[in-house]
Design a protein around this nucleic acid. Structure first.
Lengths: 203, 203
DNA sequence: TTCTAAATTAATCATTTGATTAAAAAATTT
DNA sequence: AAATTTTTTAATCAAATGATTAATTTAGAA
């Protein structure tokens, strides 16, 4: 009885959330109208305020989810003392590329969110260890004491994420990239760790 | 006489353009109001339409400029048959990193522009040779026939550009990156070509 | 079954936004 | 110097936007 009502309520709320995820990812915050979300959800416009109070609150909810899914994948891997550096690089490349192949709009959304709401982002990561205190950074330093671990971390992120953010541009510069993008990304799951190892040898 | 008038007219027009560059780069198109630009320019709001007809036209002008400056740097280098692969990598790293240090908002602006207006972007690059026909791609292929030249091109762009787009996030994950960002980027001018050479050896 | 609470609807609101207008001021031309 | 053109101004407009409202419907509790 009570359960049935709960499901119905979640269902409308969930429909709006679902639509909000889709439209905010596509258009960003400012270019998204509450009417767009209502239409995408097939729901009445007033329900956005009824369930979520404001466009802004709804956006923050979506933003929090997306930032969590983006960084939630990374931080535990970086901090795990039990896995080797090679395991970490392999796991990060594999998981990030897979996730981004399924969510190609995520990088740009996250980049915009970090730029527009750095405080909220910082608050989200409040508990996380800093990079330089992670097992990953230690392992990088051991492997190559001549290059700052931050540099190699930046490289790892760059090689996994940037192709997705730059895809529209890449497709224009090279139609071949457009035609085979997914195959290129699959290949990179194997190549990124190899490239990382090669770079780790550079002084 | 006629010259003096010309300078005055350019001066008001240029003030508005200048302000538009600043505000559009900072807020993007949708979140920028024409009033923001007018205020930033210290000009009357109606002048935006008087000189540029619409917010959209003004934005396109700024977008064209920014895309030109972003890609204008790259394409000639890629297409130059006279310079070696090492020269190219060195020049791209040096020039891109320098330019982006002076224009840190550019990457995100360009990424958003490419995503939101891919047709305009494609029209802009109309005359340019495709990547696979460039001297750069040929040279990559000669150096390493086992890896698609597109992959190495993507890496080159990733290593030079992504750190700037990701800077707000990097600064939260690692305060050390925030404190020494410019030094890290200067260092990368030398390291990126080295990393590229190391990656070129990977099969 | 009746009453109450929650969810939904369509209309409306108050504010904001890009754009227009008409008048005045400034610059240029005759 | 007068006439004409261009630039600037402040007010206004028409449409759009996030949010609110009141009525109705649906669901749940007694």
């Amino acid at each position: 009885m009570a359960k049935k009502k709960q499901q119905d309520a979640l269902s409308s709320e969930e429909k709006i959330k679902e639509a909000a995820r889709k439209v905010f990812m596509e258009k960003g915050y400012a270019a998204t109208r509450t009417r767009d979300i209502a239409e995408a959800a097939g729901m009445n416009l007033a329900l956005l305020n009824y369930y979520f109070r404001s466009k802004e609150k709804l956006f923050e909810l979506v933003m929090q989810e997306k930032l969590s899914s983006f960084f939630g994948l990374m931080l535990p891997i970086l901090q795990d003392p039990a896995s080797s550096l090679d395991d970490k690089m392999h796991t990060i490349a594999d998981r990030y590329i897979s996730m981004l192949m399924a969510n190609p709009d995520l990088p740009l959304f996250v980049l915009n969110a970090m730029r527009n709401a750095p405080k909220k982002f910082a608050a989200m990561l409040k508990g996380a260890d800093h990079l330089l205190q992670s097992a990953f950074a230690q392992q990088l330093k051991e492997r190559n004491p001549d290059v700052a671990p931050e540099q190699l971390f930046i490289n790892m992120m760059s090689l996994c994420i940037f192709p997705f953010a730059m895809r529209p541009g890449l497709e224009v510069i090279s139609p071949e990239i457009g035609a085979t993008f997914n195959a290129l990304m699959e290949e990179r799951k194997k190549l990124v760790p190899k490239w990382m190892r090669a770079m780790l040898k550079v002084k």
